[in-house]
Design a protein around this nucleic acid. Structure first.
Length: 570
DNA sequence: GCCGTTTTCGGCCCGACTGTTTTCAGTCG
């Protein structure tokens, strides 16, 4: 899958064109890059299917970009990119990504001060050569130095859980001034969060600005204005606050929830209807009167659209579906009746089986599956056959003590290199839930890994494939395998895909969920908890399912106890 | 460079904040 590589070269083209002052093209390249970045199908498969004509079907890809993608896929590089790179030294591109510098300033620093890289930039700032340039001042100079410090510290996007927890803390603090809601990618529940955008509806903005910029954990104030401020928090996350009148809150929420691409499209609809849309409402261009602003529902309705859930707002077909009345009725955050993947002190969990059962009861679940590791995952103290049998006896006892919940005997059973499962049928037969996962030999080639999964599915013992792609966000690449083939086989065999709610996994990811469900696959949303506290992570898995357009009927563990037990019989 | 219910040319989302300015360009989201 070369999607990320292709997206990367398109982003590079965009940056370079930006620096050279070329108008509009950068936007076009970024739009195409975003499309390909989010695509679930491999770009080389799209190309193989229909050459450049198929590429041109992708939104934002036209003749020119299609042929550049073709060139990249065939030769591994693009002539025009190399030509641009000759015109623009690498350092200018680096400088452009320093906070406070954009293409224009980076270009001037290169030309007027002959700065070629970040080291020289730091040196020039320290020697006060930058403040002498027209349009730059002492502030810009110290701003650059501060940003460089952060730059080297690495400002990677943070996991959703971090963003969500931080956002909720800020919402709580700001609630004293009025309604406070985190918009942006947190509200859309993206798997990673760049910064946090909090909206506050309050009559007076100044007290909010003063409070927000002087909270004890503010590390640095990037901006403080009349209605908008930006800070860096102690945990390194950037947070924006914006104060708006209550009457405009819906329009503002719509605006700041994004995504950018979703908003561009919604705004185009507004323009066609003779309106303009901003955080100050849907406004008639002729009369300047506000058409809608108080609620998001109202804004969408006046544009001829039904309400679109934040998790869908990625311009990945939701607007077209909305226009046709074909939006999915997304699975709800309270729809799950059980959690089917968790570990205890029997393997590498931190709590006893009973603790986990009690925690599941506290969450109101109808069933819970205890799925410790199988014997091959030695590092996690996987259970051999003897211990599996002991564990089954333990669960029988617990079941008598806690009749209000079905305690399912399970295993997170390794799929060995060959595609065989880690236990023999005699053991597997005694288990209610088998989550089959790959934990070793993760770098197999595409064909072998695909066959490995297909063989596991064929065994007839598998309830669900656990964390199917094996990726760890920001740290491990996904396994290489043919998701479509595996999804089709799983759908046919009645094997579910897991949506693993662990914030570093979120595996399958949104676009894969959507692709697999279109092939008829069904899902199990699980936490993979290694402690009782982890059961709360379920909401992240549900969010991911919603981003993958799933309805309750697509997810097995929305079923009530008896129906669920029937559905997982093998 | 892309795109089309104002369609093959001429738009392309829209506004806040900052610094260095005396009216605005650049950057950001």
């Amino acid at each position: 899958m070369k999607n990320q590589e292709v997206a990367k070269f398109l982003y590079e083209m965009a940056d370079l064109l930006d620096i050279l002052g070329v108008a509009w093209k950068p936007n076009a390249y970024r739009r195409a890059a975003r499309t390909i970045e989010m695509l679930s199908e491999a770009i080389e498969d799209v190309y193989a299917r229909g050459k450049t004509a198929a590429l041109k079907d992708l939104p934002g890809v036209g003749d020119a970009i299609a042929s550049k993608i073709e060139e990249y896929l065939k030769t591994g590089s693009v002539k025009e990119l190399r030509a641009l790179e000759k015109k623009v030294p690498k350092g200018v591109d680096e400088m452009m990504h320093v906070q406070g510098l954009g293409p224009k300033k980076a270009w001037r620093l290169y030309h007027e001060l002959k700065i070629h890289n970040l080291q020289e930039l730091e040196k020039a700032a320290k020697e006060h050569r930058i403040s002498k340039l027209e349009g730059f001042g002492e502030k810009s100079e110290s701003e650059i130095l501060q940003s460089l410090g952060l730059h080297s510290a690495g400002q990677a996007r943070r996991l959703l859980l971090t963003g969500l927890d931080t956002a909720r803390e800020l919402e709580k603090r700001l609630a004293r001034f009025g309604t406070a809601i985190a918009a942006g990618s947190v509200r859309r529940r993206r798997e990673t969060i760049g910064d946090i955008d909090i909206l506050v509806s309050a009559s007076k903005a100044k007290p909010v600005m003063d409070y927000f910029t002087t909270m004890p954990d503010v590390q640095r104030v990037l901006a403080k204005g009349d209605t908008k401020s930006t800070v860096i928090l102690g945990n390194g996350m950037q947070a924006d606050v914006r104060v708006l009148d209550e009457k405009l809150f819906g329009a503002a929420l719509q605006y700041f929830t994004g995504s950018k691409d979703h908003n561009v499209k919604v705004r185009q609809i507004a323009i066609k209807k003779g309106y303009k849309l901003s955080e100050y409402g849907l406004v008639s261009r002729k009369t300047d009167r506000i058409i809608a602003a108080k609620t998001e529902e109202e804004v969408y309705r006046k544009l001829g659209l039904p309400y679109i859930e934040p998790e869908l707002r990625e311009d990945s077909g939701e607007i077209e579906a909305a226009l046709k009345g074909r939006l999915p009725k997304l699975i709800g955050y309270d729809d799950l009746r059980g959690d089917c993947h968790m570990h205890t002190t029997w393997s590498d969990g931190e709590n006893s089986t009973e603790d986990m059962v009690k925690a599941a009861i506290a969450r109101g679940y109808d069933y819970v599956a205890i799925t410790d590791h199988s014997k091959s995952t030695v590092i996690a103290n996987g259970l051999d056959e003897k211990r599996v049998l002991k564990r089954i006896a333990e669960i029988d006892k617990l079941q008598k003590k806690y009749p209000q919940i079905a305690i399912l005997k399970g295993s997170e059973c390794d799929i060995l290199k060959t595609g065989e499962l880690d236990y023999k049928p005699a053991i597997l037969k005694q288990l209610d839930v088998v989550i089959a996962s790959v934990h070793a030999s993760m770098k197999m080639n595409r064909e072998d890994m695909t066959k490995r999964y297909l063989r596991a599915i064929d065994s007839g013992f598998v309830t669900a494939i656990g964390h199917p792609t094996g990726r760890l966000i920001n740290s491990r690449q996904p396994f290489d395998f043919d998701l479509e083939r595996v999804a089709s086989a799983a759908a046919k065999a009645g094997v579910a895909f897991e949506i693993n709610a662990n914030p570093a996994r979120l595996d399958l990811k949104d676009s894969h969920i959507r692709a697999a469900s279109q092939l008829g696959a069904r899902f199990l949303i699980d936490t993979d908890s290694h402690s009782a506290d982890h059961l709360r992570l379920m909401e992240l898995g549900i969010a991911q399912a919603r981003r993958g357009w799933l309805e309750a009927k697509d997810v097995l563990n929305t079923l009530p106890r008896q129906k669920f037990l029937k559905a997982i019989q093998r």
